[in-house]
Design a protein around this nucleic acid. Structure first.
Length: 754
DNA sequence: TAGATACAGCCTATC
DNA sequence: GCTGTATCTA
């Protein structure tokens, strides 16, 4: 080992476990890398070391990541380690892009041609909807979305339609999901298209059929396999890896079971938990020395995650100074929470912490609005990460649909999208008629349209409109070889009237949409051909994160995985919101543990300062909801926590309160009102006071009667006009009729009017 | 066919 | 409370 470090100086910069992870280059290795333990460093050094020692040539390494960003980063770091070597053509990429590459070379083996299209979520749903409708199913009663979701989970498990039994459909769509899955796959094949799941599934199918020799070919090619974020792999990806690794067995998977937060999209923590069983003589290396956070932050995170039963177990440590304690605050409502956070942000800024080093991480994106409003009000610069991505925007998808139609007569999904955009008086009925005609004559929508315009089976108005459109497409198709794809796109968007449509649109967004279309043309210019561009947008749809200046980051906890900040704010730690009621309802204990891992991920994003908060009242979907502090708050160890510097309501916080026993926490008892988080979204708005309350606002007076006069802190005095359990309908003298919970009003006589 | 109205559902999100 | 969609009606 000492010899090695002399020979390879870069090994000196690693700790003992990291060095092991780099040097164990043969056999199966699982690197359990806790948050902030220098995982990426170990990983890229390992790659570089394998090449440096001539253990493998660049072309013999397969490195798999989950995001393009991660792949890009790995490429850059390995390249710079090797003195700027060109890594452009190396097999470093996402599961999907690597699979697409493989599949394009062997597409006929699964009944596709090499120029198959990759459809996205939007197309998937539309296709499934069409299929359901063509089988006479009511898509209002049975959601295509839910059906598609179930199909995707099957795909995640590498189950083909033949593997899925009728009874697996459950109650969904009248138990016909398995059937619809088969239909869907058939339709995709006839469209020469794949969805994301298929990219992996088809390659597995090809690999498994040993007669074609394809797997042999890749066994020969790849001697070393490297996988990042292994805890996020689904069963299909795991099978894909195992097939590729089974010959040489040199596979190194890096991951952290405690950071598995994508179970809802098919990831299997099980893949990492049973690694030793699946790969012979597997070695597990733990990276536990954390270089990111203070001991206080780590202790808080360790304390929470220790409540999870199913984990491989690992404990982060650091030799840093204790640092500031994690702050915990309870406040009255969401608005006060946002005020408190911005106050803290301003305090940190005064202490020379740049905004770039601060992040507000929320559980659900609806929470962001409150912070955006407050940040705007305070004039603090921020950036929101997440939300609709560039290529998912309507205008971009429309523009691409035009181009796809120009380049393919058989791309029904694309043609259908724009056949009446802008409006050409070609309505649903006409489109359905054409589709039916196409199906019976085995023609695509485009081809069927042509025929029907020719044979006069359409109404004159429709016939003219459709005929004009088809003539335009013919002209554009002729232009394909004469002008470059950017000019072509420009021509198509202008001549089709699509640009004009947005120019005439008076809505607020129209201007932005036109700008996006311009940006699309610029982006296209960076590619040689339209095909290349389309492959890019299908597989490399990264979010352009403009690094424009010093700004506070506002994002979801999920989005924050892999990032770190000096200061992290974690608002909304309330039962029902976090942990999310829905996760628990749908997945029970498993769902709860995943939420807890999310808490662990969130806390460990912080380097120096972490601030957790919860509000007693929050506006959700238009109505006010009260909730008790998150059970995760009760799981925080006492030592590293400092309570209630700002929020007077946190005084009642107690440690180690049991999940199911809110009464053991005085805080919980005080706020134990409506635990109804889900299912109540549609109820009448229940207005709570928004001003800072005195505690006795919460004591229920109870027993109001119709006709009684009452006082409300915000709405003033009023008359009770109906009583339903604890809900009162009150006609206020000034504020009008409101529905109010009885505990928020007082009998008028006792009210203390300021 | 298109605009008007009713109504359900609303988390997390990569490729 | 907002938005996307399904249905109704001119």
């Amino acid at each position: 080992m000492t010899d090695n470090t002399d020979l390879y100086p870069y090994l000196k910069t690693l700790n003992e476990s990291q060095r092991q992870a780099v040097l164990k280059t043969d056999g199966a290795v699982l690197v359990l890398a806790g948050a902030g333990t220098g995982k990426t460093r170990a990983l890229t050094t390992r790659l570089g070391h394998i090449l440096n020692t001539r253990t493998a040539l660049p072309g013999q390494i397969l490195a798999v990541t989950f995001t393009n960003k991660a792949a890009q980063e790995m490429k850059e770091r390995v390249s710079s380690m090797l003195g700027g070597m060109d890594v452009g053509h190396w097999w470093i990429g996402t599961f999907h892009s690597l699979c697409a590459k493989i599949l394009r070379s062997h597409a006929p083996l699964v009944g596709l041609t090499s120029n198959f299209t990759i459809i996205d979520t939007d197309d998937q749903i539309r296709l499934m909807k069409q299929i359901m409708q063509s089988h006479g199913m009511d898509t209002k009663q049975h959601s295509p979305n839910a059906v598609m979701g179930m199909v995707e989970r099957w795909k995640d498990k590498a189950q083909n339609p033949a593997d899925v039994k009728h009874e697996h459909s459950g109650d969904l769509a009248g138990g016909r999901v398995a059937f619809l899955y088969g239909e869907y796959q058939e339709r995709l094949r006839s469209l020469n298209a794949c969805d994301f799941g298929d990219l992996i599934l088809h390659v597995i199918t090809i690999f498994k059929d040993t007669a074609n020799g394809v797997l042999d070919q890749y066994h020969h090619r790849f001697t070393h396999i490297l996988v990042d974020e292994y805890q996020d792999t689904n069963v299909a990806q795991y099978l894909w890896l195992r097939l590729l690794a089974q010959k040489k067995g040199n596979i190194c998977c890096v991951g952290d079971d405690d950071q598995s937060i994508y179970g809802w999209r098919g990831a299997e923590v099980g893949n990492i938990l049973r690694f030793e069983k699946d790969f012979k003589n597997a070695e597990i290396i733990r990276l536990e020395q954390n270089y990111r956070s203070t001991p206080n932050i780590l202790e808080a995170a360790n304390g929470v995650i220790a409540n999870n039963a199913s984990r491989l177990g690992k404990n982060l440590w650091t030799d840093k100074d204790k640092g500031e304690k994690v702050q915990l605050n309870g406040v009255w409502d969401g608005a006060q929470e946002a005020r408190m956070v911005t106050d803290q942000i301003e305090r940190l800024k005064r202490n020379s912490i740049p905004y770039n080093e601060m992040a507000v991480l929320v559980r659900a994106s609806f929470q962001m609005r409150e912070f955006e409003e407050r940040l705007n009000y305070c004039g603090l610069p921020y950036r929101v990460i997440g939300g609709a991505r560039f290529y998912e925007r309507m205008e971009i998808r429309d523009a691409i649909a035009y181009l796809r139609t120009v380049f393919s007569d058989t791309d029904d999904l694309a043609f259908e999208r724009i056949i009446n955009t802008p409006k050409r008086s070609i309505g649903d009925k006409t489109v359905r008629d054409i589709a039916t005609f196409g199906r019976t004559n085995n023609l695509s929508l485009f081809q069927a349209s042509k025929q029907m315009v020719g044979d006069g089976s359409l109404r004159p108005a429709v016939r003219t409109a459709l005929g004009d459109l088809l003539a335009q497409f013919d002209r554009w198709k002729d232009l394909r070889d004469d002008i470059n794809h950017v000019d072509l796109a420009d021509t198509v968007l202008n001549e089709s009237g699509y640009i004009t449509m947005w120019q005439n649109d008076k809505s607020v967004e129209a201007k932005g949409r036109l700008e996006n279309l311009k940006e699309l043309l610029t982006a296209m210019g960076e590619f040689e051909s339209l095909d290349e561009f389309l492959e890019h947008i299908a597989l490399v749809m990264e979010n352009q994160e403009k690094n424009d200046g010093d700004r506070i980051t506002l994002m979801t906890m999920h989005g924050a995985k892999g990032l770190e900040f000096h200061a992290v704010f974690l608002p909304g730690w309330e039962e029902g919101l976090f942990p999310s009621q829905r996760s628990m309802d749908e997945k029970g204990m498993e769902g709860l543990e995943e939420e807890r891992r999310l808490a662990y991920v969130a806390i460990t994003r912080a380097r120096k300062f972490c601030h957790i908060s919860h509000a007693a009242n929050r506006r959700m979907y238009g109505s006010w909801v009260s909730s008790i502090p998150s059970r995760f708050i009760g799981e925080l160890p006492e030592g590293p926590i400092e309570i209630g510097v700002d929020g007077q309501l946190s005084a009642g916080y107690t440690h180690h309160n049991q999940h199911n026993d809110n009464t053991s926490s005085s805080f919980g008892a005080r706020f134990k009102q409506r635990s109804s988080f889900n299912g109540n979204g549609r109820e009448e708005a229940v207005h709570f006071v928004q001003a800072s309350p005195s505690v006795n606002t919460f004591t229920s007076e109870g027993g109001y009667k119709k006709g009684e006069r009452v006082f409300h802190e915000k709405f003033g005095s009023g008359l009770v006009i109906s009583v339903e359990n604890d809900r009162l309908e009150i006609s206020f003298d000034k504020a009008g009729r409101k529905k109010i919970l009885d505990r928020f009003v007082k009998p008028l006589g006792k009210a203390q009017v300021q």
